[in-house]
């Protein structure tokens, strides 16, 4: 018990140190620094929303287009960025894995946390801007939004855990991931809501946990304007399964050290 407490203390310390280090190496001191964490995704979302806003897309549906774009983009950004940051974390961090008390899992966790915080703050900032400009209404159900964030983060984190472990030992998976990520990108519901799809289509899309997450997110935002289709329990079980398989893979691949 005492040993467990000690290792938890060490792990918290290590993750904290890794977070600080990630922030410095990623956002630098000479850039606009930490602020970049929010500005970069915010700019992306604004561009996407503007394109959507000024093309014909807005006339096809009565749904609030800006809210559609913001929720869709943020959800993708959330899990894709987690995976993107974590999948090559072992090879990038070879140097600091020289320290025995830094575990590969710590590196994964710190990178995941930073992405989740980043995505959340950019979501808040972007939403606030558009609400004040008048392009978007106030969110209807904050609890659902938070829950959706948790589900999407969990999905990203567990996917990243699997991929990161595999890639550390077999770099070929990095290439295999690319086509899969495009498929997930399309299936996630960035450009549609599940209700628009025919029954067969719904069935396929709802096999994927991130689609449930996005539907939940949109339900929390403008749920009174459409019929949302999601199953939190199903998404959670998928994520749990992926987490367990990821931890198992991580255990098998160890520190994934490349012999030089």
């Amino acid at each position: 018990m005492k040993e467990l407490l000690h290792s938890i203390t060490v792990q918290r310390r290590v993750i904290g140190a890794l977070l600080m280090r990630e922030i410095i190496t990623r956002y630098g001191r000479n850039n606009i620094g930490f602020l970049w964490l929010f500005v970069e995704p915010a700019l992306y979302t604004i561009v996407i929303t503007l394109i959507w806003h000024y093309t014909r897309a807005g006339r096809i549906t009565s749904l609030p287009i800006t809210a559609m774009a913001v929720t869709g983009y943020i959800s993708i950004q959330l899990w894709r960025n987690i995976v993107g940051r974590v999948k090559n974390a072992v090879s990038v961090n070879n140097a600091i894995l020289f320290h025995r008390n830094i575990k590969v899992l710590d590196v994964f966790i710190s990178r995941t946390l930073l992405e989740v915080f980043g995505a959340f703050f950019s979501f808040v900032v972007v939403s606030t801007i558009f609400i004040n400009v008048g392009w978007m209404g106030y969110p209807e159900d904050t609890l659902k939004i938070i829950l959706a964030f948790l589900i999407l983060s969990w999905f990203g984190a567990s996917l990243a855990l699997n991929l990161g472990s595999l890639i550390s030992r077999f770099p070929i998976f990095d290439r295999i991931w690319k086509p899969i990520s495009y498929a997930l990108f399309i299936l996630s519901g960035l450009f549609f809501i599940v209700d628009w799809l025919p029954p067969d289509g719904r069935h396929i899309v709802l096999l994927f946990p991130m689609a449930h997450g996005l539907e939940l997110l949109r339900d929390g935002y403008f749920g009174s304007m459409f019929t949302a289709h999601y199953d939190i329990g199903y998404a959670a079980i998928c994520c749990l399964g992926m987490t367990l398989s990821g931890l198992l893979l991580l255990n098998l691949t160890g520190r994934g050290w490349d012999a030089e």
């Binding site: 060490v10 310390r13 290590v14 904290g16 140190a17 600080m20 280090r21 410095i24 600091i96 320290h99 008390n101 830094i102």
Partner: peptide, 11 residues
Amino acid sequence: DNLRFICRIYG
């Protein structure tokens, strides 16, 4: 920065 990192890691 590296020193700060090492100090944090080892408490």
